[in-house]
Amino acid sequence: MPMENDLLPADSSSGRPAIAAPTQSHLKTYFLIAIMVIAGPLGNVLLGKGMKEIGQPQLWPLAGLWHTALHIFATPSIWLGIGSLLVFFIANLLALTGADYSFVLPASSLAYGVVALLSYLILGEHISALRCSGIALICIGVLVVGRSNPKTTAIEVPL
């Protein structure tokens, strides 16, 4: 059974639990979420741009698949997209180490709105009113999921 202090992050300089400075930790989390909300959608939009340049991928015969793979990895937009998604991935990992999944998840739901905005601005995609309403409903749904009780079972699953 863990002691109360075991649940708090320790202050490395004094060895005491860092309970007096929650604001800095919160700011770090908000900053990471801001990076996630921008880098994730930007990565997807860049990947979309690159894949549209390539056209429909050929999966068969194997020579066609090889040709498609070469095409994909020779496209700069794809690499920029992968880089942007890598930034998103690292920010997500770091956010999850300091905040609950049930907090990070709804906060990052804004990404669905940002992806529509960037698709419109960068790719010139037409975003219909119906699609906008759908994206708004998805954001609301993710917010509701994130605000629900994150722990509903009594049994702890071992790591």
Binding site: S128, A129, L130, R131, S133, G134, I135, A136, L137, I138, C139, I140, G141, V142, L143, V144, V145, G146, R147, S148, N149, T152, T153, V157
Partner: peptide, 26 residues
């Protein structure tokens, strides 16, 4: 995983599914 998924979470999931249906219709 045999978790008890709360009603609030199901409501959120329903919103998400409804949103995806609208995106499909769009």
């Amino acid at each position: 995983l045999h978790e008890r998924v709360s009603r609030a979470r199901w409501i959120g999931v329903c919103f998400v599914v409804a949103g995806v249906i609208l995106v499909f219709l769009g």
